[in-house]
């Protein structure tokens, strides 16, 4: 019984929030937050496309295992271009703020971003970035709850690699947009399965896939990135 009650209460609250958000763009929202996001690329040779993120409540999901990727996520995961993913977030009523970084995060690098915005509680965080030397792998943190993060506190998330399920993992030069291939990024055609899953890793030409433009240096394992959220 209890979870049901809780859920309905939350839904009522969420509905209230939606009304508030759509009703006023003024400064009379009840929360203001400043957060610092740090992203560290833990892979050996997989540059990460400029990360895109959203701060939102529980009604937004950037992706879901077993469901088809949105068009925005497909473009992000196949080409590294986050603009459509960010637009989708901007148009979602449950998203408080969204943005994509300007620069890639190279292996070993840490990039730090500061974000200030107003919100109405129930705060969650989602981030996505492409592993550019793959067909459609992206690294993500999805809907982690940060509403309990007190000022001055930070929390670390070890991010794993997902397969957008939109492009077959051929690993050929023509289909890898990163420096290892220099090939095509986004292509609207989708692979048969068309479901987001966890990524199975790359095979590479060093391990028997002779048609692969990738070599041993491009192999990766989870976690692929570290994401730290600090409430300033």
């Amino acid at each position: 019984m209890k979870p049901m009650i809780k859920k309905s209460l939350v839904s009522v609250l969420a509905l209230g929030l939606l009304v508030l958000v759509s009703g006023c763009d003024n400064d009379n929202d009840n929360g203001a937050g400043r957060y610092e996001i740090s992203v560290t690329n833990l892979s050996n040779n997989q540059p990460m496309s400029p990360p895109a993120w959203a701060f939102h409540d529980e009604d937004y999901m950037g992706w879901e295992i077993g469901s088809a990727a949105t068009a925005g996520l497909e473009i992000l995961a196949e080409s590294g271009d986050a603009s459509s993913f960010v637009s989708e977030a901007r148009n979602h009523a449950a998203v408080y703020t969204q943005r994509a970084a300007d620069e890639m995060v190279l292996p070993g690098q840490t990039q730090t971003y500061t974000v200030a915005f107003r919100h109405d509680g129930g705060l969650q965080f989602t981030l996505a970035t492409m592993l550019v030397n793959t067909n459609d792998a992206f690294v993500g943190v999805s809907g982690v709850k940060i509403s309990d993060l007190a000022t001055g506190e930070e929390r670390t998330y070890m991010a794993r690699a997902y397969d957008a399920g939109t492009e077959e993992n051929l690993e050929t030069a023509a289909t890898i947009p990163g420096p290892a291939g220099g090939g095509e990024g986004f292509n609207a055609a989708r692979e048969a399965s068309d479901k987001v899953s966890m990524h199975s890793g790359v095979v590479t030409n060093s391990d028997g896939l002779s048609s692969s433009a990738l070599d041993q240096s491009h192999r990766f394992d989870n976690p692929v990135a570290r994401v730290v959220i600090r409430h300033l």
Binding site: M198, S200, G201, G208, L209, N222
Partner: peptide
């Protein structure tokens, strides 16, 4: 330790396909 697989459907060392039957944790 994960599956090895290969890309030879009628020979090679493995009957598994390295492009399909590998995985990373978590599963």
């Amino acid at each position: 330790r994960g599956a090895l697989g290969d890309t030879n459907a009628t020979g090679g060392t493995s009957d598994l396909d390295s492009r399909i039957h590998r995985w990373l944790n978590p599963v």
